[in-house]
């Protein structure tokens, strides 16, 4: 076909098709953004009039207008702190081992493959692990904060490890070489050069992993079950509830008022997540600015 012979009708068709599909591709992005907006507006509108000090400072109740989220907020803070305490040292240590110490052999590759597979295991399966190992075996049928935190710790461990590995890998090799040239051992290089450089980035990865843990519902549901709790837990062996569990309880109630307190609890949950994500972004941005020169 000669170049000039393309009919103008064909050309018009091709251009029209181009424009139609440009609109379609654009609209798939717009649909995503609009659904997000719809969800947020819906939650926010539902919560109006229900989110007050009484709501934040009361325990759960069978009457929606008296119910509050003191116990789940306290439980969420407990779980997150316990989870962080257990996950952070192990996660960073694993990342340091894999990046700085591990020989490049089959076992190391197996560990690496295993970590990325663990990241793809459905969260409810971690709940089953926690139920069988921590609740039934370790604590003899006792559902406790510690069992929940241990379960979540295993769940977010791959995320912490992968984020820490990326942070460690981003430290320029020349920094390490400089330290080795001065006779430092491998561990001294890690302790004095690599970790101080990588810590801001690791921190931001950890915060993101913890924000994932805050929103996790299924494993905690399996490990802790739904309980009506009207106290603030005082020890890691107490029974507990967390915000997502309280939301599940309220969403499942048929009465309309429960829908509103569920929305109010979701607003609190989203505010916590937003704060943590903002902190992570801030830390990362600050770090990047410093590393530029």
């Amino acid at each position: 076909m000669a170049f000039q012979s393309q009919s103008s009708a064909r050309k018009t068709y091709r251009l029209a098709r181009d424009n139609v599909f440009a609109a379609l591709f654009t609209s798939s992005v717009i649909i995503g953004v609009l659904v997000l907006a719809w969800l947020l507006i819906e939650v926010f509108m539902d919560s109006i009039g229900w989110l007050d000090w009484q709501f934040l400072s009361s325990y759960s109740s069978r009457h929606p207008d008296q119910a509050g989220i003191l116990a789940p907020i306290a439980g969420t803070f407990w779980v997150i702190i316990l989870t962080a305490v257990m996950t952070v040292p192990v996660g960073i240590a694993t990342a340091v081992y894999l990046e700085e110490f591990a020989p490049n052999n089959r076992i190391t590759r197996l560990i690496q493959l295993n970590i990325s597979n663990l990241a793809g295991v459905p969260s409810v399966v971690y709940g089953l692990l926690g139920l069988a190992i921590f609740v039934q075996y370790l604590f003899d049928g006792q559902r406790s904060l510690l069992a929940g935190a241990l379960t979540l710790s295993l769940l977010v461990m791959p995320i912490v490890i992968i984020a820490s590995q990326e942070a460690i890998r981003a430290v320029p090799p020349s920094y390490r070489d400089a330290a080795y040239a001065m006779g430092a051992t491998r561990w001294q290089v890690v302790k004095m050069v690599v970790l101080p450089q990588a810590i801001p980035s690791i921190m931001s990865g950890i915060i993101l992993a913890m924000s994932r843990a805050i929103g996790e519902t299924a494993p905690i549901l399996v490990v802790s079950s739904l309980v009506f709790i009207t106290y603030v837990p005082t020890s890691p062996f107490d029974r507990f509830t967390v915000l997502p569990l309280q939301i599940v309880t309220w969403v499942s109630q048929p009465q309309d008022d429960f829908r509103h307190i569920a929305a109010a609890a979701i607003v609190i949950l989203l505010v916590m997540l937003l704060t943590m994500n903002a902190a992570a972004i801030y830390i990362r941005a600050k770090f990047q600015r410093r590393a530029e020169y």
């Binding site: 969800l39 519902t217 997502p244 599940v248 569920a262 989203l270 997540l273």
Partner: peptide
């Protein structure tokens, strides 16, 4: 980043959205 926010919303919130909206 806006699309990433969709991936960061807890699944229980999506459950609420699916059931009630």
């Amino acid at each position: 980043p806006i699309l990433e926010v969709l991936a960061g919303i807890p699944t229980v919130v999506y459950g609420y959205f699916a059931l009630l909206t």
